Amino acid sequence: MTDVPSSDIAFTPRVKALQAQRGSRSAYARMEERGGFRTAVTPELAAFLAEVDTAFLATANAKGQPYAQHRGGPAGFIRVVDEHTLGFADFSGNRQYVTTGNLQENERAFLFLIDYAHRRRVKLWGRARVVQDPDLVARLMPEGYEARPEQAILFTVEAWDINCPQHIPRKVDAAAAAAALARLEAERDRLAEENAALRARLGER
């Protein structure tokens, strides 16, 4: 364990004082004794990323003004580059470039990932940078996805943690729901045909 737990990236002295005041400090102190938040990309996190199709990237400018931007794509659009780095192709959008501008002034960033269907969410603290490398963009671009990549964003993971599922509403992806409904309708039609065939046989007798 290091002298400073990784969770100190979020648990500032002021935060710890509030935890102590409101009765949760001892539980988090035990977590800190084990090192705090995780700092490397684990197979568990990689598997979660492979299923994620939406994310929120938070940045701040040099004055500390925060900004959060939605980023989405097909499941797995956020790729594991190495044990401490994530990357994704940044698609062309409304061309405001707030995130890009913020990262030129302040590399600190935060990723919030949520899976409504399974009521899971992951928080990642780190540093991000925009990369204008066509080869990297091509490697990160989801195959067959119809969007125009403008650049790549690399996110260096400094700490990450899993939130409890409390208060996450369960929502089902529309495509997944449509596929499940199609399977049920196909099974209904098969059973109806089978039932009609049985009735016909009984009628012949």
Rank of each mutant, 00 (worst) to 15 (best):
R139N: 08
K63V: 09
I9Q: 08
R129Y: 06
G73K: 01
T85D: 06
Q69V: 05
D115M: 04
Q69R: 06
Q104A: 15
F155K: 00
P149T: 01
R95D: 13
S92A: 12
Y116W: 09
N102D: 11
A152L: 00
V130H: 07
V15W: 09
A196Y: 12
E33V: 04
L49I: 04
P5Y: 00
K16L: 02
N61F: 04
R22P: 09
G87M: 02
G76M: 04
A178R: 11
A147W: 01
P134D: 08
F112M: 08
G87R: 02
Y116Q: 06
E193R: 15
R170D: 13
R201V: 14
D189I: 10
D173G: 05
L111V: 04
D115R: 02
R120M: 11
V4W: 08
E204F: 05
P66F: 06
R199A: 13
T100H: 04
A138D: 02
H84I: 11
D53M: 04
P43C: 06
T156A: 12
H118Q: 12
R188W: 13
I168S: 10
D82M: 07
A55F: 01
V98F: 04
G203S: 15
D3F: 14
A192N: 15
N106W: 05
L57D: 05
A176I: 11
S6Q: 02
G36D: 08
E105R: 01
R119W: 04
G35A: 05
N106G: 02
R22H: 15
N102Y: 02
A50G: 12
A109E: 00
R190L: 11
A58Q: 07
N106Q: 11
F37S: 06
T42G: 07
A40L: 13
D53C: 05
Q69L: 03
D133C: 11
D53A: 03
H167Y: 14
A175H: 12
R108H: 10
E194Q: 15
G101D: 02
F11W: 09
M31V: 06
L103I: 05
G23M: 06
L111N: 01
G36Q: 01
E150Y: 09
Q166K: 07
Y145K: 10
G203H: 07
F155D: 01
E158T: 07
A27Y: 13
R201W: 10
F91T: 07
V157G: 01
A200R: 09
A179D: 15
A180F: 11
R201A: 14
A55I: 01
P43F: 05
F37R: 00
N61D: 14
L113G: 02
E146W: 07
G73E: 01
A117S: 14
Y145N: 07
I9T: 08
A128V: 05
E146Q: 11
L18H: 12
L103M: 00
Y67A: 08
R34Y: 03
R205F: 15
A182L: 07
L202D: 15
D90S: 10
R139M: 12
F155C: 01
P142F: 03
F91E: 03
E150S: 13
D135Y: 05
D8A: 14
A20W: 13
E158A: 12
I168L: 09
E32A: 06
P74M: 09
V122P: 12
G93V: 00
K123M: 14
A29N: 13
D133S: 10
I78N: 00
Y67V: 08
E150R: 13
E32N: 05
A177N: 08
Q19H: 10
W160V: 02
M141H: 14
C164Q: 08
A58I: 04
D135V: 07
